[in-house]
């Protein structure tokens, strides 16, 4: 299957980009950064093709199985990373986002299990639900990277011992802004996606929260992110606390994906 080959090429390009980006972070070669950027862009193009071909092959949007969902999610995250690197002028962003991308990409379940959806409840809403949630999740990958960078830089500034990473990382303010911006970008999409999913579940099964692990973990994850945002808006949780919570939120996100893959529920498997 050509799309599987394309996907492998994309993932390989992401891996090369990751290694180059980490090399740029720790060493001091501009060439490595350029290589990382080039590989990320090339990988993204192959990834786009792979997703497009898969959609054409299936005759539907490739948003039904978990592997499809994760694939589209990291596709979105790579696109956002390329955007954010430009907008925030954070050359080392790739070194923090790409490991997550590659990790998710490698952990992606290889089987292409379709969700066991009863035909009666299939509706257009499922696509909108999935697409919105994915845009949100992609932005949250960046939110996580921003938080990790913030914590690293904050630690260096507190310890007063500048290491090589200190010189590469941007200011705390930039990193805080990056985290906040990606959170405000991702959260509304995530919320809209989850609400749609809940409404759809209510219509289909007669209950908004039936026993479905993916749905339950999603709610936990949503609450973590909602609390960060609330804390921000109230003005209490800037900086380090927001960063720690963003890391916690991302752990919830990973658990959500893990639950979707491992546990039996209405989202399939």
């Amino acid at each position: 299957m050509i799309n599987a080959v394309l996907y492998d090429i994309a993932l390989t390009a992401y891996i090369v980009a990751m290694v180059a980006a980490l090399g740029h972070l720790l060493g001091r070669r501009e060439g490595l950064w350029r290589l990382a950027l080039l590989c990320t862009q090339a990988g993204w193009l192959f990834h786009t093709l792979a997703i497009g071909l898969r959609g054409a092959e299936l005759g539907r949007l490739p948003l039904l199985t978990l592997s499809e969902l994760v694939s589209v999610m990291i596709w979105g995250a790579v696109l956002l990373e390329l955007w954010a690197e430009r907008v925030f002028r954070v050359k080392v962003l790739g070194a923090f986002v790409l490991p997550v991308i590659v990790g998710l990409g490698l952990a992606l379940p290889t089987g292409l299990r379709a969700l066991a959806l009863e035909p009666a409840i299939r509706s257009a809403w499922i696509w909108v639900h999935a697409a919105l949630a994915l845009i949100g999740l992609a932005a949250l990958v960046l939110n996580f990277a921003g938080a990790v960078m913030y914590l690293l830089q904050e630690r260096q500034l507190k310890a007063k011992r500048p290491g090589p990473v200190y010189y590469r990382l941007p200011s705390l303010e930039t990193l805080d802004r990056l985290s906040y911006r990606t959170l405000t970008l991702g959260f509304p999409f995530l919320t809209a996606g989850l609400v749609l999913g809940a409404l759809w579940a209510g219509a289909a099964w007669g209950s908004v929260l039936t026993w479905d692990p993916l749905a339950l973990f999603s709610v936990v994850m949503w609450m973590v992110y909602a609390s960060i945002l609330a804390g921000r808006v109230v003005g209490r949780w800037h900086g380090r606390r927001a960063a720690y919570l963003a890391v916690a939120g991302f752990c919830a996100l990973l658990l959500t994906l893990g639950a979707g893959i491992l546990l039996q529920g209405r989202h399939g498997s």
């Binding site: 830089q153 500034l157 200011s171 705390l172 303010e173």
Partner: peptide, 9 residues
């Protein structure tokens, strides 16, 4: 320079 690393601008 440290101030810039903390506050950006």
């Amino acid at each position: 320079e440290l101030a810039r690393k903390i506050f950006g601008s």
